[in-house]
């Protein structure tokens, strides 16, 4: 997911840089033409606005960068406690992976894990069986 957003953003950045350079050249040409016209004739020089293709390129480049940045944002988390805790119960760490494929640093773990590991809930017979098998194997 991240490489898509990064490549889209880079493409838009190239377009925007090209549009910026074109606008700069256009304004430089305008001022040069105005200066030469003033020295040759006494006609008032007309300054034209930015050409349509540069305007379109700028807006399209802005939109493309915007799209790339939005695609690169981190996934949101539910704010209601019951939805959030249910998501943790169902998905565990997989629900809190960011774009780079790592678990978020502020992931706190299951809020109910303390309840699950209370001593009253330990299956002592199962542990005894496992221990007996381990002894039988001669461990």
């Amino acid at each position: 997911m991240t490489w898509i957003s990064k490549s889209i953003t880079t493409l838009g950045g190239l377009l925007l840089a090209h549009a910026c350079y074109s606008a700069r050249e256009h304004s430089a040409l305008q001022s040069l033409r105005a200066a030469s016209a003033a020295s040759l004739t006494s006609l008032p020089s007309v300054t034209t606005s930015l050409p349509l293709d540069i305007i379109i390129e700028t807006i399209v480049a802005t939109f493309i960068i915007l799209l790339g940045l939005v695609l690169g944002t981190r996934p949101l988390r539910p704010i209601e406690w019951r939805v959030w805790a249910g998501k943790i119960e169902r998905e565990g760490e997989e629900g809190f992976i960011d774009g780079a494929g790592e678990v978020n640093k502020d992931y706190m773990g299951n809020p109910f894990s303390a309840l699950e590991s209370r001593p009253n809930f330990v299956d002592i017979r199962k542990q005894r069986r496992e221990f007996a098998e381990w002894v039988k194997k001669g461990g």
Binding site: L76, R77, I79, E80, W81
Partner: peptide
Amino acid sequence: ISPIVQESLVHNSRT
């Protein structure tokens, strides 16, 4: 009745 997780709220608005 339906409490809100502050950490998630902060995470969302910061994003």
